[in-house]
Simulated assay, not measured.
Amino acid sequence: MASKIVLHIGLQKSGTTFLQHVLQESCEVLAEAGVRYPVLPDWDRGKRTVANHEWPSYGLLGTEYPWVSQRRAAAEKDSWQALLDEVKSWPGTVLLSAEALSVVRTAAVQRLLDALRSDDVEVVITARSLGRSLPSLWQQHIRNGRSTSFASYLGTLADQRAKGWEQIENDTDLHLWRAFCLNRLARRWSEAGATRVSVVTTPGRPPELLWRRFAQAAGLPDLAVLPGRQAHTGLTAAETLVLSSMNASIREGSWTGQNADWVRQVVTDRFQTRETRGRKVVIPLEWRDRLAEWSDEDLTALQDTSAHVIGDIDDLRYAPDLEQDSPPTTEEVGAAGAEATLALAELALQESFVQRNTRRVRRLLP
């Protein structure tokens, strides 16, 4: 049985994918140092791009996640058992990473800790300021096919927060604040029995600094060479607006989900290759004071918990005075729209070329 288990539970949009890439690519080096990062044989099925342990956790926690059906949970039971067997067979430290664990309620936290059957479970939370997390979450919202404005998205979050912490802790659908209120997240896991909870502040750049802070929190050895993995790059303000408008038009056209996903992927991949992309998404002016209040409230309460903060706690503080005030220009939006059009036009032309030549070959056949 593992002598110690380290659970990295996110948060979402805090560099988790970058860290998981590093852990996956370094799993052999880590194993030589006594730390097991399980990479299960079936990790690459579906749409995953990096090995993590979210899907196996569905086999244990199932519909505790609002997006997981009973059928999906049943399908992941073998994956969970395989992961548990890895934990049982390793004599040293086992490191598991699944950002979805940040949203689960107290009873599910207890169920997981009981299933792991370890007397030493440390929890590592990676976190960014709300001023950086919420724009990234809204971008993901748009990338998933929505067309909600950023202001409306923040309004929904404000309504959820206003429901009160008791309801947030118990309503599965209010999972965003269950994760992103750091002081309550830290308390939830420590009160359930975690032996130590660490909060790693995400500095942004360079990503190597995030890795060093994470390695310190997780008790990992220094890697001689950090794998050349780039941190994820989000969309700019102009690109997000273009994609949002595309989503609205796609919805009006009643496209299939598969075709809509394909178009969004083509466009977002093209956006990533642009040299001049415009300014980043920022908090709307009318929401900045509210976010500053939320941020100060949470960080004050976090310092009253037993959580260990690795890094500078001011990395987590939202500072409205540092925001850009100007929205994306008409030229930036137009350039992003043109790039999206070109990406789709090039694919259409390639397909037309193949179709034309196919017809020519068929005419030549006897």
Rank of each mutant, 00 (worst) to 15 (best):
K4F: 06
L7T: 05
H8I: 11
I9S: 06
L11V: 09
G15L: 03
T16F: 10
L23V: 09
E25A: 15
E28Y: 02
V29N: 10
Y37L: 10
D44C: 11
G46K: 07
K47Y: 09
A51R: 04
H53L: 04
H53T: 10
L61C: 08
S69E: 07
R71G: 13
R71M: 14
A75I: 07
E76F: 08
V87D: 01
G92A: 05
A98H: 09
R105K: 11
V109I: 15
V109W: 12
Q110N: 05
L112N: 09
D114S: 12
V121I: 15
G131A: 07
L134S: 01
A151T: 15
A158K: 15
A158W: 06
D159W: 01
D159F: 04
Q160H: 14
E169V: 05
L174D: 08
H175W: 09
R178G: 13
L185I: 07
W189V: 02
T195C: 09
T195A: 01
V197H: 02
L210V: 00
W211F: 13
R213Y: 10
G219K: 04
G219Q: 11
L223W: 11
L226A: 03
G228L: 05
G228H: 09
R229P: 00
A231W: 04
L235F: 08
L243I: 06
S245H: 13
M246R: 07
T256R: 10
Q258K: 15
D261I: 06
W262E: 13
F271K: 04
F271V: 00
F271C: 01
T276N: 11
T276A: 09
R277H: 07
R279W: 01
V282T: 13
P284Q: 02
P284C: 02
L285C: 04
L285G: 09
W287E: 09
R290S: 12
D296G: 08
A307V: 02
V309N: 01
I310K: 03
D312T: 11
D315K: 07
L316E: 07
R317Q: 04
A319Q: 11
P320A: 02
P320N: 04
L322A: 13
Q324H: 11
D325Y: 00
D325T: 11
P327F: 10
T330L: 15
E332H: 07
A335F: 00
A343W: 02
L344R: 03
E346I: 08
Q350N: 12
S352L: 15
V354W: 04
Q355S: 09
R362P: 01
L365K: 14
